[in-house]
Design a protein around this nucleic acid. Structure first.
Lengths: 177, 177
DNA sequence: CGGAACATGTAACCTGTTACATGATTTC
DNA sequence: GAAATCATGTAACAGGTTACATGTTCCG
């Protein structure tokens, strides 16, 4: 039950069409809540039926024509309610860790190469986040909204840092005699 | 497509019944791949139909009677194949981060209390993992299988460490003047 | 014998993924 | 006018969640 809220947040930040949202879910919002265009169109339909958002008046056909949405008061209220409600952290689910555990019973063939590959991917993501931090959060910006967006980015940076460190250490550990 | 492989791993570590598996998915394996008993029974049925596992002979009724499963060669082969195959890391999906981003548009009401609550939960989980490390991985155990299981536990410890640090810092940051 | 704990399952639903379909606009 | 790109969708399926159903064993 979070995709609708991710969409409401994105639309409040800036009214958009389905495709524009899809693009934004490949960056920004997508860094901590990813979604494909199929999911987004389906959810936009539901949100519109429920009166949480509305399409900006733009007479004409449905197919092939850009359709911009904006959030209605009911949608904003629902987002505020959801944001304030307490939620438990979700238990971890990670295939790489599962594969290492499986490797303890069926052998490490293939896993080690993938550790290297993941290390590179996480290093790249880390570099990208650090670039964004430098660009969007220069020292001195400290309105509450900026601080909130900054701590979220910080979580991304710290997580990628964790992965690169853990992977480096794990690769050494498994290659040791 | 990972639940069957999690179950195969668990069954190779030790043949078990559905309920025993459910219990083990609340600890151990469940620390990085959780599953409910409904999922487990459904998946056991599929794995048995596919010839990956079999129920140990135990004549009698089906309902209410314990049914132990063991992995067949086909199941072990499939697990080895899956473990060796390269897989991309899944993009992050975290509701707490999404809520903070939403809070930048609808206000921080309610979120701050939840940050405190999550901090306590992550501290508890961290303590539990450290307890397990002390108990199960005393210095000197270094067969490959032990090393593999140890690095997985290490990932859990490092992740919980990340969360506690990030939450502490974030709480300070948001409570600052 | 009645209730708690053990044990296995079914059904309905929601979310996410994959593959495909279709129309509109721009560009060469 | 053909191809690329923009833009919105449909359908089928896979996986996860929630609620419920049912039988067995143990213990007081």
């Amino acid at each position: 039950m979070s995709l609708p809220h991710a969409i409401l947040t994105a639309l409040l930040e800036k009214p958009s069409s389905g495709l524009e949202l899809t693009r934004r879910f490949d960056k920004s919002i997508g860094y901590f809540w990813s979604a494909t265009h199929q999911q987004i169109y389906r959810e936009l339909g539901k949100l519109e039926r429920d009166g949480a958002i509305r399409a900006l008046p733009r007479q004409g056909v449905t197919r092939g024509q850009k359709k911009e949405y904006e959030v209605l008061p009911a949608g904003r209220d629902e987002l505020a309610r959801w944001t304030a409600a307490s939620q438990d952290p979700k238990p971890l689910r990670d295939t790489l860790l599962l594969r290492l555990r499986a490797a303890a019973v069926v052998g490490t063939a293939g896993v080690q190469e993938d550790l290297h590959r993941h290390l590179v991917l996480h290093q790249r993501q880390l570099a990208e986040y650090e670039e964004i931090e430098k660009r969007d959060f220069p020292p001195g910006k400290d309105a509450v909204e900026d601080r909130l967006r900054h701590v979220v980015l910080r979580a991304g940076i710290d997580l990628e840092t964790f992965w690169t460190q853990w992977l480096t250490r794990t690769i050494e550990e498994l290659e040791a005699p």
